[in-house]
């Protein structure tokens, strides 16, 4: 390929640098490099276009963009690096707010995973995104505009208009949110690009499987129910039930609907409730079958969302993942997915 051989001549593309650029596609270093490559939108490398398209589809369907960063082949890395700006163009041209939103979120998730392993880059990347961090402080306006739910301004060390980012995970989360918002802004603007991309974007819109994005636990075939991957709120409710303390209707409903929707069979659910005061096996079974839609009106109840949990005061000990999801079941799905992936990798 012409560009790469040219680049090789000048010895500018060190593999490690390239990998950094792939991991952090918005960094000023990456931008300089992309500029140097003079990517031609009129006659693009079809492999880059294909990769860009896949990146959007994966982002929307699986909330996962998985950039290729491990390769020692500079051609592959360059292709991946160029796929990012093109993927943004495609997401924008799709004109579909669902596609745009999901894609931006997936890119931010990828960034978060990289940064969690190498938080030392977070400060520089924040500056690259337009928010310089001086001695651990960030202006409150920038913080408030990108405050993740679990690091709300109200819980921040705010003084004289600056927020102190004391913990590394706060900084990482902050940069990920900045990145997500930046992508959303970028792809909200109309773009002037050659016509061919409009038809590729239309293909994405047509191909993307919306149901996959919403897939429930059942369809995902996550295997046996793994209570260790439950969100903190549900773990707390199980502990409450096991402690033999009296349980009000709302916590009872939350716990049973969650377990039903996580595909736990009916008998183990009954066992969880056994230590509660005035436990009655038949009543409990009826109640669970009722919630499953097997008795009564036939309505299958879904578990309450995080918002409702907060309203009822059953949201407790939220952790970093809680800030990124809106439903306790999503928490479980995310955990099970990454567990499954880890398992697949080690198995292979």
């Amino acid at each position: 390929m012409r560009i790469t051989s040219l680049a090789r001549c000048f010895r500018i593309f060190d593999i490690n640098r390239l990998s950094y650029c792939v991991r952090y596609p918005f960094s000023s270093r990456t931008k300089d490099m992309v500029k140097l490559l003079k990517f031609d939108l009129e006659s693009p490398d079809p492999l880059v276009v294909e990769r860009a398209k896949q990146r959007v589809i994966d982002g929307v369907e699986r909330n996962l963009v998985e950039p290729e960063t491990q390769s020692r082949n500079d051609k592959i890395l360059i292709r991946e690096m160029l796929a990012f700006p093109l993927a943004k163009i495609l997401a924008s041209l799709s004109g579909d707010s669902f596609v745009k939103r999901r894609y931006a979120r997936a890119e931010a998730n990828a960034l978060r995973r990289f940064l969690e392993k190498e938080p030392q880059f977070a400060s520089q990347l924040s500056a690259d995104l337009g928010v310089p961090i001086t001695e651990g402080f960030v202006p409150f306006v920038a913080y408030a505009n990108a405050a993740p739910e679990q690091y709300k301004l109200v819980n921040a060390e705010l003084d004289s208009g600056r927020v102190r980012l004391r913990r590394q995970e706060t900084l990482v989360e902050f940069v990920a949110e900045l990145f997500r918002q930046r992508i959303e802004e970028d792809i909200a603007k109309p773009m002037k690009v050659p016509k061919r991309y409009t038809s590729i974007a239309a293909e994405i819109k047509g191909e993307v499987n919306r149901d996959k994005a919403y897939s429930s636990v059942k369809e995902m075939n996550l295997g046996p129910v793994t209570t260790s991957e439950f969100p903190p709120c549900i773990t707390a409710l199980i502990e409450l039930a096991q402690s033999g303390a009296p349980m009000a209707h709302q916590p009872r409903f939350t716990l049973s609907t969650f377990l039903i929707n996580a595909n736990m069979p009916i008998d183990p659910i009954i066992e969880i409730f056994r230590p509660t005061p005035n436990f009655n096996e038949n009543k409990t079974r009826y109640y669970i079958e009722y919630s499953m839609g097997k008795k009564g009106s036939g309505t299958k109840y879904s578990a309450p969302s995080c918002e409702k949990m907060k309203f009822y005061g059953t949201c407790v000990n939220p952790d970093a993942l809680c800030g990124r999801i809106k439903h306790p079941l999503s928490y479980y799905i995310v955990k099970m997915r990454s567990k499954k992936q880890a398992g697949d990798k080690s198995g292979a």
Binding site: V141, Y143, A144, N145, A147, K152, L153, V154, N155, L158
Partner: peptide, 18 residues
Amino acid sequence: QLSQQGRKELLDYLSSRG
């Protein structure tokens, strides 16, 4: 330059919500 979300964060700070 505060976004609506940013303004909400500010209001939550004032009311100690969250």
